[in-house]
Design a protein around this nucleic acid. Structure first.
Lengths: 244, 244
DNA sequence: CTGCGACTGTGAAGCAGGTCACATTGCTCT
DNA sequence: AGAGCAATGTGACCTGCTTCACAGTCGCAG
């Protein structure tokens, strides 16, 4: 991967601009508006494991990931935790609390060392009002999020382990818009288990079965989908047994 | 309850107006704008069990419930089904497909005989653009939905039967803004079981335990929450045992 | 007032997935 | 180069929930 890290690390305005311009939400803004937005944007870095915010915090800002990935999750008193989403470079998060001003719905943790841009509600909301098209963009974003979350809820309620796991793999490959051949999903088995709400051990055993059939290949910290078709069947099938 | 059914049944414009004016999304509109909206609104009735739309349909309209309740659910190939939400009088649904123009994410079924107002995307979107405040209202609505759905997902992944059931009961009492004393939730045990993703039998057994402790009273087609406190404890506690 | 369908109540038996307890393997940081 | 940690692999046992198979019970439609 090309290293524009140096530019980013120095916090040059041009790099902020580049990041914002690439994002679907902001790409259609007029150049002057983008410039203004850049002036509002604060640059921040977090080490792996650091908390960007926690569930229940008063939420007043929107985040854009510049590099690294951020984990959106919640955890229960007894230490179990559920991952709702992994946010990668170019994506935004924290928009719900930004928009409605209420408490954060999840924890956000740096899943790797990462850099983010932060936009504050106080400055951002007036800016949004001055850009009517932006509200529509956010409506679309919220719709997408709602579809993603409903989908997850549906899978978790209706499907058993093989179905849920297959669905999660499909969703992850689609999200990264990977080609049919050699779709590498860069997540650990622990992470996947927390996304589908089952134990790492169970996930591992199922993945091994599929690996033996050459549907997937297991790598360190990644899963390569070799044959998506049977997985798609399982994902559709509700709670059946796996493909035998 | 007072019967303005006669007015409704005749489809008088004044009744449409009354319904729309009461809804949080539309209540702040200017009188002229409301009148215009009424002209767009189509009145429709459905018998218990009838499908208003199905998952995957191209979605082009927004619904407002005038009377009765509508069930938002999905079902799997093998007949199991999951209820995402029960929409009662005064609430709206179908907004996601209206706003982003994509396929419906769930089935909508008349859970009782019901009357609805239908607003079409073709007329509604231009109307919305003429009313900038309306976009903000929808953003708030979408945020609320997202919080509700994330909450459900969190419960289903992190909690066991008692915790999930308690959470569901709390959510239902809160939704209907019922007073602490004598909160009657008008749902069947079958419905609750489909909301939390467990079997009716299991739900029944747990409810009986709580009824014996006077935390709830079970009626035909309804559950009365007598003592919310222990349920709230359970709902918070992640997956513990029930209150012993 | 009676019969039928929707809702509720309950026990017995099975199993999917969780829990626990390890061994192994590979990256990364001195 | 090897210590240390994060991630993976695997078996034995356990349990919470499902499945199945009923038996009430309510309320309404005719």
């Amino acid at each position: 991967m090309p290293q524009d890290k140096t530019r980013e690390a120095r916090g040059l305005p041009s790099s902020k601009l580049a990041v914002l311009r690439k994002h679907p939400i902001f790409c259609d803004l007029e150049p002057e508006a983008l410039d203004q937005l850049c002036r509002y944007a604060r640059h921040a870095t977090f080490k792996r494991g650091a908390a960007l915010f926690s569930k229940g915090d008063p939420g007043t800002s929107l985040f854009t990931v510049v590099s690294g990935t951020v984990k959106m999750s919640v955890s229960s008193a007894d230490g179990r935790s559920a991952i709702f989403n992994l946010i990668g470079a170019g994506e935004i998060f924290g928009e719900i609390a930004l928009l409605d001003g209420l408490a954060r719905t999840t924890d956000a943790t740096a899943n790797t060392n990462c850099e983010v841009l932060v936009l504050d509600r106080r400055e951002f909301l007036p800016f949004m009002r001055s850009q009517p098209a932006l509200a529509m963009k956010f409506i679309e974003l919220l719709c997408t999020r709602l579809r993603w979350t409903s989908d997850q809820l549906e899978q978790v309620i209706l499907q058993n382990l093989p179905g849920r796991l297959a669905s999660a793999l499909i969703r992850l490959t689609e999200k990264h818009k990977l080609e049919p051949a050699g779709r590498t999903v860069a997540v650990t088995q622990q992470e996947i288990s927390e996304m589908v709400g089952m134990t790492r051990e169970s996930i591992n055993k199922q993945l091994r079965v599929w690996a033996a059939r050459n549907w997937v290949r297991l790598e360190h910290g990644a899963i390569v989908v070799l044959n998506a078709q049977p997985l798609e069947m399982l994902a559709e099938a509700g709670s059946g047994n796996d493909g035998d």
